[in-house]
Amino acid sequence: MSALLEVRGLMKRFGGLIATNNLDLDVTEGELHALIGPNGAGKSTAIGLISGELKPDAGTIRLAGADITGAPIAARVRLGMTRSFQVTSILPEFTALENVALVEQIRAGHSFRFWREAARDRSLTDPALDMLARMGLAARAEVAARDLAHGEQRQLELAMALMTGAKLLLLDEPMAGLGATESQAMTTILAGLKRHATILLVEHDMDAVFALADRITVLVYGQAIASGPPDAIRADPAVRAAYLGEEA
């Protein structure tokens, strides 16, 4: 069976530094695949390359069989893939509802519509309200995104990513900066999402990773040193030495 996302021989250099080194990665449809590794291992760089924000120096990326290595970001989103960011990335002045409605607007087609008021367009606000409700943000719809609590902002980001209609979500540390309870809530949300989308999850919170992941790939210095089910990764001596060992 071929993977939904298939990465082969991906390379990225920043000057002398090799941030992604001959990376192979398969994400199968329906799985939650965790990408872990120490700080600076190249996880965010890998997400950037796959999402199209960064251009690789070598290698190929296939999404559902189609070569998207050189495709612009917008084309990749149209094919059903989007990313979230390690540092909270929302539209701070817009309300939660406006944030999500804008995603629905972009999903629905081009935005060369100059006359009708977008705020009163039920075809945008209705699906956006549904999505906010799914994320537990219904009561906060009219609050400016910058005034939301940090945990709520992270949920809003997820709502935006989902509203693109993506089959494949690339989530870069959705729990960064969250407290214990908030992390727990996010873990529950992600567990619920697993049924609807394939997820490539970058995360430092090992409790969350081992609770959620079907498979784990471990990156060190831009290279995948191991890939497999959680139990195998936990037992892998190379992984223990290079990474988990640090925490134990």
């Binding site: 989007t82 539209l91 972009i106 693109t164």
Partner: peptide
Amino acid sequence: RQNPRRMEAIGLA
């Protein structure tokens, strides 16, 4: 204006 990077990430050309 608010966040060009995010706008691209959600699929805007």
